[in-house]
């Protein structure tokens, strides 16, 4: 069942007639829904299955990909590009294991469509060190403080930690704890993670 009605664009834009339907299942972010009208014939989805072209910069390298629009950035990194450092822990934005830097900010690759990362700069754990060959101070601090056990959440923790410092939210252990709460560590290496970030925060000079 769908909702189909005639509406038109705002006066500030060219007045063109078009149809919009919106999901009965409710309001998406930023879109409204109105009353249902009669059901219609099943959709032909074949044209929806054509791959979409995407250009993404990952760790400084350009990638041109032809993707299913449903693919998340996480799965694109892992399955298409072959960078498996970002991990799938929940696939719903509830654990932080998939954290990557997008245009320099920590974001969740599991809730990012790969197609919407078009033209954006993505840094994964594999690309954090830069070219010099030295281990990033945050990585070294994680080793020094034994800030992991099984290691599965670690790439996400480290990228999140780097952002935490760059954002200026690593000023005290309390602040680090709060701003690192988006990365769950089931092994519970939390105290060591906080110690590692405190150390790296000084070394990063940010």
């Amino acid at each position: 069942m769908t909702d189909t009605r005639d509406i038109c664009t705002s006066p500030s834009t060219p007045r063109r007639r078009f149809l919009i339907g919106s999901a009965l299942t409710g309001a998406a972010p930023l879109i409204a829904r109105s009353e249902p009208v009669a059901a219609a014939e099943p959709a032909d989805t074949s044209d929806l299955r054509k791959p979409t072209s995407v250009d993404i910069h990952v760790n400084g390298r350009p990638f041109h990909l032809e993707l299913d629009t449903r693919l998340t950035l996480l799965d694109a990194l892992r399955e298409e590009i072959g960078l498996t450092g970002a991990k799938k822990g929940c696939d719903h934005g509830q654990c932080g294991a998939c954290t990557v830097l997008i245009d320099g900010r920590r974001e969740l690759s599991c809730l990012t469509l790969a197609v919407s990362a078009q033209g954006r700069d993505v840094v994964t754990i594999e690309g954090l060190d830069g070219g010099g060959g030295d281990l990033h101070p945050m990585k070294q601090a994680f080793i020094d403080h034994d800030a992991f056990q099984c290691g599965y959440c670690t790439p996400g923790q480290i990228l999140s930690a780097v952002s935490c410092v760059r954002e200026g939210h690593a000023g005290s252990p309390e602040e680090i704890r709060e701003y690192m709460s988006g990365n769950i560590c089931r092994c519970a290496a939390y105290p060591n993670i906080v110690a590692a970030i405190s150390q790296a925060s000084e070394q990063m000079g940010e």
Partner: peptide
């Protein structure tokens, strides 16, 4: 090193 580099293979 493998764990902080994301190269540990799960």
């Amino acid at each position: 090193l493998e764990k902080v580099n994301g190269s540990a293979t799960y």
